[in-house]
Design a protein around this nucleic acid. Structure first.
Ligand SMILES: [Zn+2]
Ligand SMILES: [Zn+2]
Ligand SMILES: [Zn+2]
Ligand SMILES: [Zn+2]
Lengths: 154, 154
DNA sequence: GTCTAAATTGATAGAGGTTCTCAATTATTT
DNA sequence: AAATAATTGAGAACCTCTATCAATTTAGAC
């Protein structure tokens, strides 16, 4: 639960739309995308628009209050959980689950030192085929077919 | 340098366009996107189309010959370097450079075991502001301003 | 080499996902 | 309360990427 003072950073105004979007994200563990957030926000404020959702997600990410998760293909998803962790993305349905493992932040400083890049952070993302998406044959074999898979690094 | 036998996997035919796209990617270290690859491919075969580039990048990634890199915002970039490594993406210009560090592949098997997901792989991506994009003030301070940054996890 | 079947291409339209524009509204400062 | 600047809602626009389809090319059989 982020306090209002954090959200009222210089040059920013805390609107009810912004607060609503953050509350929705804080209440969920399924890493929703912009459209899913819009859908839930409309239950509270039917007039809210998609552009407002995108704009606020961007501002909240700038403020470091939420994280943007790339799913390689589909649109971005978002996460307001404050504890650092990794993600496991299904290559077929795009579903994102948490993996309770992360690298030390000292690694970021190390990369910054070696490259000269500023404000270095990192994202560790796993990709796989979730049990719901795997075929019966694949489950038996223990691995998904290469066909219709993609090899990713991102 | 990948051999033709690898590229002629079952149900696949090795066209000169496919080979050209792979050769271009193998010759570069700057992780180009589809448009940049198209541009260079046209120098050899002016009639080649963007759709062909996208289709072939997808097939080559399926074959495990190249990797797709997500840059969170801009389009995907691609990499044909065979040695596992991480990437450092500039938050402002999208430039991608290599970081000679990666996690053990045994971690993928561990995640697979714990989650039931099949064919698990991973991507470790660092984000930062490159020296070209940082302002003078930011360089002196040693960190980039929070404003117009995004906090990412993907 | 010739023939056949299937994969691939080029061209173009189309489908998301995300950003931009701008007048009207609202949050903060004085 | 008034002034100032950020934000909103609506919609058009944008960008990346995918789908479609007739024409072409590859790979394998003869
Ligand atoms: Zn799935
Ligand atoms: Zn998460
Ligand atoms: Zn840069
Ligand atoms: Zn690389």
């Amino acid at each position: 639960m982020v306090e209002d003072s954090t959200l009222r950073s210089p040059g920013r105004r805390l609107t009810k739309q912004r607060r609503l979007i953050l509350r929705i994200l804080e209440s969920r563990r399924d890493h929703p995308g912009a459209l899913e957030i819009l859908e839930e926000a409309k239950k509270v404020q039917p007039s809210i628009s998609l552009g407002t959702v995108y704009r606020n997600l961007k501002v909240l990410a700038e403020q470091g209050v939420i994280k943007e998760i790339s799913t390689l293909g589909e649109g971005s998803r978002f996460d307001a959980q404050p504890v650092p962790h990794s993600h496991l993305v299904c290559r077929r349905c795009g579903k994102v689950i948490d993996v309770p493992f992360d690298l030390s932040e000292t690694l970021d400083a190390e990369v910054s030192k070696q490259t000269g890049y500023l404000s270095v952070s990192h994202a560790l993302t796993f990709y796989g085929v979730c049990p719901d998406c795997a075929t019966e044959a694949e489950r038996k074999r223990g691995w998904a077919t290469e066909r219709d898979e993609k090899s990713e690094e991102g």
